[in-house]
């Protein structure tokens, strides 16, 4: 297994480098932060001086070389706007998002498996139809819109929950609830579809005919086979969750990495943006390794190939 991880790691490192190059050059195509940083009344000379002192007037390739050299020494540059090392900003924000995404993913996975399996047991039954409708409908509403409506209803009108911020467990309910909508809808559909397929397989049919118990069939025979697809999709949803986190963190005022990234993009705070990318990319690669391991556990054929 160590060699497996190692091999995956080197491949991933290469992919990471590609991503970094991509973002580094793309980000600089969007312009430099001089005008955003300096006051509107700054003169042309002041602007030129600012750009020069921060190296924005060098060719992008030179800037990239300088950046890579820094990264080798674990120096990820300073945040222009925050006046502190970019990595500090990222390390402070990352755990927030990790917790938010972790709780959301765990909850949606559990719910999706339960709802999806039950729906697949009797496709087109009332339960299946209602569950499908609800999960699809919930995944079809714009999340920022749901978030604001939720605040107006549950916090302002009913006074049940705090409007925003973090702190007590009650602060978690709305952000996690809103963030869950999307993965829950998709995962339930995927679990259901995969389970229908799995339950239609001959050996499961045989088990069913032999009168094996419902839960046994679902969890032992069906789920095991359905898990492959579910894990693929759940893995994909991890990056997608960060998308949702950008919106949810913005609305609810959570100091997470989504919030930080969007701010870094808008401000052209390149060092922070790059540090964010390295961090999320690393986390997602790490998770992909875990998924691959899970894959090979669940399906021996992958390991041999």
């Amino acid at each position: 297994m160590n060699r497996f991880v190692l091999k995956h790691g080197t491949q991933s490192l290469f992919a990471l480098l590609c991503l970094l190059v991509l973002v580094f050059f793309l980000a600089r195509l969007t312009g430099d932060p001089t005008d955003l940083y300096l006051p509107m009344d700054a003169s042309i000379e002041q602007r030129a001086e600012f750009a020069a002192s921060h190296g924005f007037d060098d060719p992008v390739v030179v800037q990239f070389g300088r950046y890579l050299a820094g990264v080798m020494r674990f120096d990820f540059g300073d945040s222009l706007f925050q006046g502190r090392p970019a990595i500090d900003a990222v390390l402070a924000a990352f755990p927030v998002t990790l917790k938010l995404a972790g709780v959301t993913m765990a909850l949606s996975l559990v719910l999706a498996i339960v709802i999806g399996s039950l729906a697949a047991w009797r496709p087109r039954s009332i339960f299946d139809r209602v569950a499908s409708m609800l999960t699809i409908a919930s995944a079809s509403a714009p999340d920022f819109w749901v978030a604001i409506v939720a605040i107006l209803v549950f916090a302002v009108s009913l006074g049940w929950l705090p409007t925003s911020g973090m702190g007590s467990p009650a602060h978690w309910i709305m952000p996690v609830g809103v963030l869950m909508f999307r993965p829950l809808g998709l995962l339930t559909q995927v679990v259901r579809a995969a389970m229908i397929g799995a339950l239609a397989a001959p050996y499961v049919k045989t088990a069913r005919a032999k009168g094996a118990g419902k839960s046994r069939i679902i969890f032992v025979h069906g789920l095991r086979n359905a898990m492959l697809t579910v894990i693929t999709v759940a893995g994909d949803q991890a990056a997608t969750l960060i998308n949702g986190a950008v919106v949810v963190e913005t609305v609810f005022g959570w100091p997470g990495i989504g919030n930080l990234m969007i701010q870094a993009i808008q401000q052209r705070d390149f060092a922070v943006l790059q540090a964010c990318i390295l961090m999320t990319a690393f986390a997602i690669f790490f998770m992909n390794v875990l998924i691959d391991i899970a894959y090979s556990r669940l399906d021996p054929r992958v390991r041999t190939s």
């Binding site: 604001i148 605040i151 107006l152 916090a155 302002v156 006074g159 705090p162 409007t163 925003s164 911020g165 913005t250 609305v251 609810f252 005022g253």
Partner: peptide, 18 residues
């Protein structure tokens, strides 16, 4: 001092006493 980007949310926070 805290911060929220949506005006609706900021207004709601004062209304809710937060």
């Amino acid at each position: 001092y805290i911060w929220r980007s949506e005006s609706t949310v900021r207004a709601a926070m004062v209304a809710a006493g937060e």
